[in-house]
Amino acid sequence: MIFLQQVVSGAAIGCIYAMVALGFILIYKATETINFAQGDLMMVGAYFGFTAVDLWGLPYWQGVIVAVAGTAVLGVVIERVLMRPMIGLPAFAIVMVTLGLGYLLRSLVTMVPGWGTDSHKLTTPYTGQVLRLGDLVVSQEHVVIIAVTVVLIAGLYLFFRGTRTGIAMQAASQNQMAAGYMGIPIRRLSTLIWAMSAAVAAIAGILLAPLTFVHAQVGLIGIKAFPAAVLGGFGSMPGAIVGGLILGICESLAGFYLPEGFKDVTAYILLLAALVFWPQGLFGQSVRKKV
């Protein structure tokens, strides 16, 4: 029973990792950029949620919508201001820009009046409630995280399979130049991708907030979502979800059964081991690059 309990709470955290990893992968597939500020976007999303719900006093669900929309707008601004001038430059330079952006976001939030350097609590209608399934006691926060992740993933799946824009995005991610020649507006899609990725990050941040409080360093969880994305092959959305779940569950079990200290590094040990055997990730395709 304890084992199952650990698995469920691990799966909930794993879903958060999976969502952040999903944000990485959306941007990576569309623009081949790794957004090191993804975790920080998540942190900003959580702050927006806190502002809308606790400072402005909006009802929870409205507040969430405002926060997600606000973060999506921030994503668009970032794409327009920072990423546009970088189109066509080496991938590494773009990565460094997102690193700088992460620093900037982390320090800017501490300067906003009402946010400051303190930790804040985001009030939700479901905090403190538990769901009982036989002997299994699952806190409502975990249930919500898992449920929202499932819905979100189903939505994204349908979007990429069923809509014109989604298919255009897939085309652009497979071959940017060919997609451009086919009349797909690559720049506009890239803006949209950043908005989507920021929105996903905001949802993850708001869901995580009841578990961890809202503070400027929350975004460091993004660094843990990396192994999740890489385990899944960094280009595959189902891979990200499986990767996130594996990490979350292993971490939770390691925290319970292994000596202290293992919990924080499980993700990395697992990742190194996986990379040694599958250098392209579990779901990655291994293709030799043409010269």
């Binding site: 952006l101 620093y103 350097t117």
Partner: peptide
Amino acid sequence: QTGIETAAFGIILILFII
């Protein structure tokens, strides 16, 4: 503001690369 060093670091890093 306590975060000003980090902010400046981030801005300068971004400016340099752009």
